[in-house]
């Protein structure tokens, strides 16, 4: 999966307009990044990848790039 595809999925999870994320955004600056968004991300990772999302590690993620690194490693 490409990073851009991840960003488009994050836009859907965060209920943002398509192509509005460029990947440099800090999670704390995204108004939709809350507990429901985390569940949405977990569900997507569970359905898309062979390994589940590392939930404890997610708490250390500061940016979307950090989240992508967690998912794609």
């Amino acid at each position: 999966m490409e990073y851009t595809e991840f960003l488009r999925q994050m836009e859907r999870i965060l209920e943002m307009e398509e192509n509005s994320l460029n990947g440099t955004e800090a999670l704390r600056d995204l108004s939709g990044w809350d507990s429901l968004a985390v569940l949405g991300l977990q569900a997507w990772v569970d359905a898309t990848f062979s390994s589940p999302l590392d939930v404890p590690a997610l708490t250390t993620a500061a940016t979307l790039e950090d989240v992508w690194r967690l998912i794609s490693k």
Partner: peptide, 11 residues
């Protein structure tokens, strides 16, 4: 801890 509970159910 909602995310951990959700992961538990998925697992």
């Amino acid at each position: 801890d909602g995310p951990r509970i959700f992961q538990f159910t998925l697992d």
